[in-house]
Design a protein around this nucleic acid. Structure first.
Lengths: 334, 334
DNA sequence: CTGTTAGCGCATTCAA
DNA sequence: TTGAATGCGCTAACAG
């Protein structure tokens, strides 16, 4: 069943059928009805493949996610989908466990998709410029470089957010605060680490490298890091984990060793994933406005695809500390 | 840059270019090299849109997920992606919060995708037959009807799995076991409920409707259900939740009311999502082989798309009880 | 307001 | 082994 069939059936030309299907106004009410009737009776559905070739567009976007099981990412994805759906785009989701999937470039170049949103970008600025520059790509995460603008991006101010967490802990009287970081290849992770250090300095606290650990955001990673930490002679009174998953994993390890939280150890996470509220004690954490991040990333990409000028290259969203029950004032008598 | 350009550049015809790009054998080594060189130098990439129209295929699949934030679904998705990627398919992910997105039918009919995998199917068999029959669709969840085969499906035996959980609890001496069910529109949820009841009967226990609750799989739902349960005068000694999320939500509510788990209440979940191991106490639960479910669903769909005969309409995978620390023997002295 | 026609870029059949 | 020509189904420019 093709367009010509409904044209013949309704006694008009294919152009006219195309017009009424597109909802153009310059068609008589009467012919419009004729065509619609034919479409109905013939049970006709336009062929997207043909339309795509003709218009040279796919109405398709790809989003690249490091790891779907991370609730932060799936939530950002939802935010992306929300706005793209309205614009009639379908979204291809590819999960890539490490860095940037080279196939993304391929998908764009061979026109399978019109653009891409990356939720994590593990590459140097140089590498990015070589491979991805000028492609319709936006980062739903920190932008690539410390100073220079390469790809458009949407994220929170990770540095500031980490500072807030440390401030909170310092105000509670904590002097020794351990840090469980994410994979350092990711700029956002480095920013959080710097924010942590800076927060320490601001509060007149010492930076102790033996309290700084690198994880990979996961539950298991937090669990292991905590076990490592517990091997040390002089323990901290608080842990700041760069993801809720790591915080929850750490809580598990701590409890297994008989630690009470927050009595014996305060813990603060990052992300505010759904389950953070339901662990015991409920997790104090730095919230990320994931849906909004997704919304904004999608909007950014759409304006790029439409060749419109960007209002801002990097949109930075607010994040706040969500205070629950995993931190407490340090015991003065210590 | 189109095929004609590289044809001209290398002094051959477009047909020849097409052949070498496709890796056909009936091409001289020499001309092949010429063409490849041209492709290289012109930086040519075939246009997927044109290829798709010409071959009348999209190399695209859609998978419909109720809720990405549910770790079970994201894990099944991963399993699907694993096999589809190898076959050169891209996968569109759509999240639909309730039942079947009508747009799926549209996507198939307008040839945007070649098939669909549904991770949840909230509709009657009748409805299914009217709308989706004979479309290339497979269910990565229980099949539609109790008796009749409509669409191919991949799932565990939910009835049996629930029985196992109840047996375990009964063997531990529990006589009053509450049930937190999923949304009853879903066949799998009904099967689990029946398995629960059957398990009770098998163990000579009474079915007490006041101990049966309907939730919606979520953390919040489990939390609320537990609070409802606690309003009752005569409490059970164990809760069987039809999802880990509900189990974890319930644990939270219970703890808030001063209950110790498993001392005061045993809890068992369903799914074995990653975090189940990291809550305290770690959650005893019925594991679902999510990756395998995804793998199998994808394979099924592929053979349907290729018009091959199905070896089996419904593949049923094994599931096991994963025993951790959220259940204990009921205190005999009670 | 409507019809004719020429692409869109690639695949494929038929000759050579 | 290669080339010429036709078609995939729809869009859009142009003519009427």
């Amino acid at each position: 069943m093709k367009m010509r069939d409904v044209a013949k059936y309704s006694g008009v030309s294919v152009a006219t059928v195309s017009r009424v299907l597109k909802g153009e106004s310059n068609v008589t009410q009467k012919t419009k009805e004729k065509v619609l009737k034919a479409v109905e009776e013939l049970n006709y559905v336009p062929n997207t493949l043909a339309r795509n070739l003709s218009k040279m567009q796919s109405k398709m976007i790809v989003v690249v996610i490091p790891n779907l099981s991370n609730a932060v990412f799936s939530s950002i994805y939802r935010g992306i989908q929300e706005v793209l759906k309205i614009e009639g785009y379908q979204v291809i989701l590819v999960e890539t466990y490490n860095g940037v999937d080279p196939s993304v470039i391929e998908l764009i170049r061979n026109r399978t998709v019109e653009g891409a949103i990356l939720l994590s970008a593990v590459m140097s600025e140089e590498e990015f410029n070589k491979k991805l520059k000028d492609l319709p790509i936006v980062l739903a995460t920190d932008h690539m470089s410390e100073n220079i603008s390469t790809a458009p991006s949407v994220s929170i101010d990770n540095h500031l957010a980490a500072e807030k967490a440390v401030n909170y802990l310092a105000n509670l009287g904590h002097k020794r605060i351990a840090y469980f970081g994410g994979v350092p290849d990711v700029l956002g992770a480095r920013r959080r680490l710097n924010g942590y250090k800076n927060g320490l300095i601001q509060n007149g606290l010492e930076i102790d490298e033996s309290l700084i650990f690198n994880g990979n955001w996961s539950l298991e990673s937090g669990y292991q890091l905590a076990n490592q930490l517990l091997l040390q002679k002089q323990l901290p009174t608080a842990i700041f984990a760069a993801s809720d998953n790591m915080a929850i994993g750490a809580m598990k390890a701590l409890k297994e060793h008989g630690f009470k939280i927050p009595e014996d150890m305060s813990i603060i996470g990052f992300d505010d994933i759904e389950v953070a509220k339901y662990v015991t004690p409920s997790l104090t954490t730095v919230e990320q406005p994931t849906i909004e991040i997704g919304n904004n990333a999608a909007k950014l990409l759409l304006t790029i695809i439409e060749d419109q000028p960007l209002e801002q290259m990097h949109v930075v969203l607010n994040s706040n500390l969500v205070i629950r029950h995993s931190c407490k004032k340090v015991n003065e008598s210590l």
